[in-house]
């Protein structure tokens, strides 16, 4: 952008905050109303008005009243379309913003609800993240727009400014309103690519041995070599052959006790990256893990909730 245009834009943003919505983010839900909807002719609209002017001068010059009437009708319809464009946006509500999870460097999926309490809104367009999404908002209904935001760093990611606009109905005018929702999206840290396994206390060697209280998963025919204590004697008595209790218990794994201070000679980001990788691995392998951070401790557990708690804590490490 050339410098004078930049100065102009800066002036506009200073003087007309609602023109650009640069000044502050605003809390959701955002209701679009007349004080924040702007309308200007599109390039095509400018061309069309030049054409109308030519038609007007021609009709007046030739004193051709039928042509003048045609021109007036076209002009009136065109200027009426400005109000229609305004009505597309007026009264729209931008409600819930939901975001998925993503690691730094991946893109995060964000969805935004656009609702209209009255009237069907045709051809609403949302410019965000370098793309344009076109959709219809039904009368009294809600349309959800989903888009992907690229991420770079862990932690809170502020939603970018978005432009909601419409050229409905004839493409002659563009009505628009800037949105800057006060909503952040959490970005999880990026795991390191390679690294050592966490320190594992040497557990008992009796792997593969069913623990007491383990339920048999199934019964099957006896095969040579099955341990005798797995034979279901009572059930076998009612059958011709021997039945074996098949204890398909996964090999029990040790809990990982992950500790911020257990690593030496690493800076904070590397620690976060390593812990993130370990947590990912533990989750994939179905292990239980605990996480100790300098200012927090998450006791041994597993599952999604535990995972997200740990990741959030890591993402928000200073």
């Amino acid at each position: 952008m050339p410098p004078h245009v930049q100065r102009l834009v800066a002036w506009a943003e200073r003087r007309l905050p609602s023109l650009t919505r640069l000044r502050q983010a605003e809390p959701l839900p955002i209701l679009l109303h007349r004080r924040r909807i702007y309308i200007v002719p599109t390039g095509f609209g400018m061309g069309f008005s030049v054409l109308l002017a030519v038609m007007l001068v021609g009709a007046l010059n030739y004193a051709n009243n039928a042509a003048l009437m045609l021109t007036c009708l076209l002009g009136a319809a065109a200027s009426g379309s400005m109000l229609v464009a305004f009505r597309v946006l007026n009264g729209l509500t931008i409600g819930g913003v939901r975001a998925g999870t993503a690691r730094a460097g991946e893109s995060v999926r964000v969805s935004i609800d656009v609702a209209a309490s009255q009237r069907e809104r045709m051809a609403v367009r949302l410019d965000v993240a370098g793309r344009e999404f076109a959709f219809v908002v039904p009368d009294g209904g809600t349309t959800t727009v989903e888009f992907e935001l690229p991420t770079e760093f862990r932690g809170w990611l502020a939603l970018p400014r978005m432009r909601l606009h419409s050229r409905w109905p004839f493409g002659l005018f563009r009505a628009w309103s800037w949105l800057h929702p006060d909503r952040n999206v959490l970005v999880y840290p990026r795991p390191e690519a390679l690294g050592p396994k966490p320190f594992e206390p040497s557990g008992d060697t009796d792997r593969g041995r069913p623990r007491p209280g383990d339920e048999p998963a199934a019964l099957r025919e006896y095969r040579a070599g099955d341990p005798r204590r797995q034979i279901a004697w009572k059930l076998s008595a009612r059958h011709h052959g021997l039945l074996v209790k098949d204890l398909e218990q996964p090999a029990p794994q040790e809990d990982w006790r992950l500790d911020w201070d257990g690593m030496h000679g690493l800076d904070d980001e590397s620690r976060i990256a390593r812990l993130t990788r370990w947590i990912d691995e533990a989750r994939e392998a179905g292990r239980r893990w605990s996480l100790r951070l300098p200012d927090a401790y998450f006791d041994v557990a597993q599952g999604d909730e535990h995972y997200h708690r740990c990741m959030t804590a890591l993402a928000l490490r200073p």
């Binding site: 030739y62 009708l73 009136a76």
Partner: peptide
């Protein structure tokens, strides 16, 4: 419908757009 809504404005414009008493260039 949009054209119908535009009729009042166009009629008004038709009545009040000042006519040229002499043409700007030669009429055909």
């Amino acid at each position: 419908l949009a054209l119908l809504a535009a009729v009042p404005l166009s009629l008004f414009a038709f009545l009040f757009v000042p006519r040229l008493s002499t043409p700007l260039w030669g009429a055909p």
